[in-house]
């Protein structure tokens, strides 16, 4: 009996060694500051993992950028590296510092790296992920990014686990393919809460969890970014004036959202 437990343990250790960095269940989490969402995710999103963000439509890519920035802000105040590919910069524009401030992100935190192609992107990402002092590494492969495959994403996520640096892959122009990402999200812009005189309001998005390695089922969530407190809110439904109380019941969530 004793012997077999020991054997099992050694076997597990050996398999673990072969597999390299197998995602361990006990990843540190960072909360999004939205009680219901955090509860649903079991406390938040895992640090030191690779997360992929997709756009529902190509024109939603600025919402993907926004969501990635918001996550980076939730990850602390250390500098982060943003790797962008030339083609992507051409098609979606340069990052604009005054706009980053308007989302609450200090542009001084950002080290932007523009790379000519995917190979250079993955190579630079590999270097950046190993730098433990970074809060996050945001990588933006352009279009299909064939080189960003299962192997490449697995390599990145193993490196991320070792260093504890969170990697966010912004894949606005790509369709979800096989990858080793820990979670996978789809982001789309939704109409914001109208301000006075019919002005568009705060950054408002809907995120969809497509996949979670921890086995959390897919769900939708509408979010409004509160820059002043750097947290997510539930956006008020159009016409509704009463904000959803913090920690509202689970069951009520989906029904209300569908109604909205």
């Amino acid at each position: 009996m004793h012997d077999s437990t020991y054997k099992l343990a050694t076997l597990r250790a050996r398999i673990g060694a072969i597999e390299g960095g197998k995602p361990s269940g006990s990843a540190a989490l960072f909360a999004l500051g939205h009680d219901r969402l955090d509860a649903r995710l079991g406390g938040g999103i895992a640090r030191g993992r690779l997360h992929e963000l997709f756009a529902a439509d190509p024109v939603d890519q600025s919402s993907v950028t926004g969501f990635a920035l918001m996550l980076a802000m939730r990850l602390g105040s250390d500098p982060f590296v943003w790797l962008r590919q030339d083609g992507g910069v051409r098609s979606s524009g340069e990052l604009y510092a005054p706009g980053l401030i308007d989302l609450g992100c200090d542009p001084a935190r950002i080290i932007e790296v523009q790379v000519p192609d995917e190979t250079a992107l993955l190579r630079a990402a590999g270097d950046a992920v190993r730098c433990q002092q970074l809060a996050a590494v945001l990588i933006e492969p352009w279009k299909g990014a064939r080189a960003f495959d299962l192997t490449a994403s697995r390599r990145l996520s193993i490196a991320a686990e070792k260093s504890g640096v969170t990697v966010l892959a912004l894949r606005s122009a790509a369709d979800p393919g096989p990858s080793a990402a820990y979670t996978r999200w789809r982001v789309r812009a939704i109409p914001s809460q109208v301000l006075e005189a019919g002005a568009p309001g705060l950054a408002t998005i809907e995120i969809t969890l497509l996949r979670h390695r921890g086995g959390i089922a897919a769900f939708h969530q509408r979010l409004e970014w509160d820059r002043d407190q750097a947290i997510f809110h539930e956006p008020p439904l159009s016409g509704a004036v009463v904000p959803v109380p913090a920690g509202g019941s689970f069951a009520a969530g989906p029904a209300r959202r569908r109604a909205g």
């Binding site: 600025s62 950028t65 926004g66 920035l69 979606s92 524009g93 340069e94 990052l95 604009y96 510092a97 005054p98 706009g99 980053l100 401030i101 308007d102 989302l103 609450g104 200090d106 542009p107 001084a108 914001s192 301000l195 002005a199 568009p200 309001g201 705060l202 950054a203 820059r227 002043d228």
Partner: peptide, 19 residues
């Protein structure tokens, strides 16, 4: 330092700019 945004205002400048 960058100028701080006015609390309560929505974002007035875009995150991505075409030039």
């Amino acid at each position: 330092p960058w100028p701080a945004p006015t609390p309560g205002e929505p974002p007035l400048r875009p995150v991505q700019l075409f030039d």
